[in-house]
């Protein structure tokens, strides 16, 4: 017995001493991934941060290291307006995308449970908005918001007595609301998908128990469904917020940031600085501001996941 034991330990030690084969090590398998991450993510971020501390132009690459780009950005007359526009756009986009996403998800869920006709069509129609590229959505809404006689929305509004039409895109305040509305339309589908998936995880027993307790629909929604969905809603909130901060294509196609700078969000400002004004340094500094905002959102996202896992 003793011998057997000794023998077993010897085998174990022998196995421990055995030199590691490269093929058994995970390092080599990670090399391609690390290379891709370094090239595609880390290197561009380092370059953006580096350029943000220069006065580089897109054409003339001779530059010096300076804080001028940040100084110029923070003292620019349009900087705080850009932050306000972005804040408005993100806040209202996210709020309404979440609310409408929840509403549509509940409708689809109820429709599916009651086996109503057209539920699949409704779900597909909503998803279509999400699948359309932002530029196309921008063009579609440009046609809808058109303020001439060819405008679709103004034509419809003329039937309810608004003959003079609404300046959807030519008024600075209206244009910001119009752009936000179009973005809500675009983003509601994503929230709907997330929340609908969350709804499928709610146990039927829980809902039945609330019915037995005599809870009405509103009570069921606010006291049971939303609390259960809260982890999904929170993750959805973070993802949608980051996505909205990065929105550029639709705004570019719809208003180009105008009139003036009334709809110029941060992401669009970066494009304008680098590709229209050729100011690589200032564009990079603006990109760093956006990067910081997104990093903050990501930190909150991970903290939320950690907290959620701890609760579970």
């Amino acid at each position: 017995m003793k011998n057997e034991s000794n023998n077993g330990a010897g085998i174990y030690k022998k196995a421990q001493r055995k030199p590691k084969k490269l093929g058994n090590s995970p390092v080599l398998w990670f090399i391609p991934l690390v290379l891709v991450l370094l090239l595609v993510f880390v290197y561009p971020i380092i370059e953006i941060i580096r350029f943000s501390f220069t006065d580089a132009g897109l054409i003339d690459r001779d530059y010096t290291y300076t804080l001028k780009s940040y100084f110029s950005l923070f003292t620019s007359p349009g900087f705080f307006n850009m932050l306000f526009v972005t804040g408005f756009f993100v806040f209202f986009s996210v709020t309404f995308q979440m609310m409408l996403g929840l509403a549509v998800a509940l409708l689809v869920d109820q429709g599916m449970k009651r086996r109503l006709h057209g539920t699949v069509i409704l779900r597909t129609a909503v998803l279509t908005a999400w699948a359309i590229p932002g530029v196309i959505i921008g063009i579609i809404w440009t046609m809808l918001y058109n303020e001439s006689n060819a405008g679709v929305l103004n034509y419809i509004l003329s039937f309810v007595g608004l003959d003079s039409g609404i300046a959807f895109l030519s008024d600075p305040i209206n244009s910001l609301i119009s752009v936000t509305f179009a973005n809500v339309w675009r983003g509601t589908a994503f929230s709907m998908i997330m929340i609908y998936a969350g709804l499928q995880t709610i146990s039927k027993d829980v809902i039945e128990a609330t019915l037995v307790d005599g809870a009405n629909a509103v009570q069921r929604l606010f006291k049971v469904i939303i609390p259960i969905l809260s982890p999904v809603l929170f993750i959805n909130l973070i993802v949608v917020t980051v996505e909205t901060f990065n929105t550029f294509d639709m705004v570019m196609a719809l208003t180009g940031g105008g009139p003036g700078r009334s709809t110029e969000v941060i992401a669009l400002s970066i494009y304008n600085s680098i590709f229209r004004q050729f100011e690589l340094g200032q564009g990079a500094a603006t990109a760093v501001v956006l990067l910081l905002i997104n990093t903050l959102m990501t930190v909150i996202y991970f903290k939320a996941i950690e907290k959620n896992q701890a609760v579970n």
Binding site: G57, G78, D171, P259, G260, Q277, E279
Partner: peptide, 27 residues
């Protein structure tokens, strides 16, 4: 080379004035 910046800023100025967002002086 300064023209691109000048043009972009004055495009915003003209657009802001036409939309009523800014006075000519402020723009």
């Amino acid at each position: 080379t300064s023209y691109t910046k000048i043009s972009a800023e004055l495009q915003n100025a003209a657009s802001s004035v036409l939309s009523g967002g800014k006075t000519p002086e402020d723009a």
